[in-house]
Every structure is written in C-alpha cells, then in structure tokens.
C-alpha cells in the first residue's frame, strides 16, 4: 500500500510542489515571527530584508561569491586530478597503498578547523584557504576511486588476459570504466566538502588576509553587527553548494545515463 502511494507520488507534480510549499511555509513562518515580535534587523532580519540587502550589496557579495566559488572549483579540480592519480598508483602497487593510506586517513580524520591556523602560518592566505578546501575534497575521491579500481569483475579480467590484453589496455578499457561511477560518487561528495573547506579556511584566515570570500564577509559583517548581510552571504553560500551539487549530478548523469543502474529511471 505504502509502496503504491510512494510510486504514484514519484510521477505526480506534487513531487516538486510539496517541498517548494514546505520551504515557502518555513520562510513565511520566519517572516511572521519577525513581524509579530517586531524584531529589529540587528537581532533577526526578515526574509525580505535579506533579499533587499542581497540586491543592495550585490557588487560586494557577488564579488565574494566568485572568490569562494573559484577557490572551491580549483580545489575540486586539483583533488580530482590528485585523488584520481594517486588511486591509480595505489591500484598498480599495493605496497604504495599500504604505505600512504594511513597518512591520507590521518589527514581526513583530523578536524580541518584545527589544521587551518597552522597552514596560515606556513602558507600565504590564498594558498592556505585553497589547501584547506583541497584536503577535505581529496579523500573521498581517493578512497572511492581506489575502491572502484579494485572492483573489476574477475571473469572480465580473465577474459582480458585470455585475449592477450596489455596492462594499458586493461587499465583503459576495463579498470577505468569500472571505476568511473565510484569516482563520480566521490566527486559529488568532494564538491560539497570543498566548499566547506574553503569556508573554514576563510573563517580561520579571518581578518588576517585581504581575503574577500563569502565566509570572510560573514565574519566581517558579524563584527559590524550587519546581520542582514550575514544572512545574505549565508544564502549565497547555500546557493553555491546547491549549484555545485547540481552541476556534478548533471555531469554524472551525462556520463552514466546509457549504462549505469544509478542513472536509470524506475523504468516502464
């Protein structure tokens, strides 16, 4: 029964209308709380006030959005290239995997916010922020791609051997396609994490640098009690995260839609 209702929901316009309506209600509730309690904007600005600020401060905020997005994307590309390449090394030499994986894990489990101040001592502010974003994005790509490269079907591997495939042919025609869905899954996680890393780095850098990313704007606006601008910057960070996730999901769908289970509809 429940299954049938869920299935019907999948195809109905309610699937889109419902979450939008819920979100609208939350914003409406926020607005009502502000109006009914007559809250001043430096305590809690209403949603319209936030939008006004966004429009009024658009030059500063959009500039900051570009800075944060750039950091995030550069970190993500570097993490994808580095994580993918190291996974390839891991897959071809297990001894390297045994030797290096613990270091990757230590980097991953140590809270980034605790490493960031150290990096700001040794690196320039921009590089430190980029490194923060890179560190957190690197691990999911590395571990997912390694898992993918090790998930090759044993019979297919035998078939390649039987057909006299060389090492490079096996890598290109068998291991890489097998690992692709895993890599893309890692990339999607890394996209969100790179943004978190960039924000953490910017906050740790604080007023130390000439940094002008969105998180820096939040810290700066906090000092000036410009609460509406804090909210506006926060809204842009959320939008940036959604944008990155949507773009990576689209990429994943484009690459896998012909064959992978994850990219297929429920069918019929």
């Amino acid at each position: 029964m429940a299954l049938r209702i869920t299935h019907r929901l999948e195809n109905s316009p309610f699937r889109w209308a419902l979450p939008v309506a819920v979100l609208g209600l939350v914003v409406l509730g926020w607005d009502l709380v502000v109006r009914l309690n007559d809250l001043p904007p430096y305590i809690l600005p209403g949603p319209l006030r936030v939008l006004d600020t966004l429009v009024a401060d658009r030059t500063v905020l959009l500039g900051s959005l570009m800075v944060t997005l750039r950091t995030t994307l550069v970190a993500l590309v570097l993490a994808a290239v580095g994580g993918g390449a190291l996974a390839l090394v891991f897959a071809s030499a297990r001894i390297v995997e045994f030797s290096l994986f613990p270091i990757a894990i230590i980097l991953q489990v140590t809270p980034l916010i605790a490493i960031a101040p150290l990096m700001l001592i040794y690196l320039s502010t921009d590089t430190a922020v980029l490194t923060c974003a890179w560190i957190v994005a690197f691990f999911p790509i590395l571990s997912n791609t390694t898992l993918g490269l090790n998930s090759v079907d044993a019979n297919l591997r035998d078939l390649f051997r039987l057909s006299g495939a060389g090492r490079l042919q096996t890598l290109r025609l068998l291991q890489l396609p097998t690992a692709l869905p895993y890599f893309l899954g890692g990339l999607r996680i890394a996209g969100g994490l790179a943004l978190v890393g960039a924000v953490v780095g910017e906050i740790a850098a604080g007023s130390a640098g000439q940094g002008s990313g969105l998180a820096f704007r939040i810290v700066e606006s906090g000092y000036r009690l410009n609460i509406p601008r804090m909210f506006a910057a926060l809204l842009l960070i959320s939008l940036a995260g959604i944008l990155i996730y949507a773009a990576l999901s689209l990429l994943s769908w484009l690459l896998l839609r012909r064959w992978h289970e994850s990219a297929l509809g429920t069918g019929n």
Partner: peptide, 14 residues
C-alpha cells in the same frame, strides 16, 4: 580459444 563463463560477463558500459 573462445571462453564462455557461467555469467554473461559483459561490460555494462559497452
């Protein structure tokens, strides 16, 4: 020599 496995063992991406 041709070899046929118990499973079809096809490459899903091709």
């Amino acid at each position: 020599v041709g070899f046929v496995f118990q499973e079809p063992t096809l490459m899903p991406w091709a």
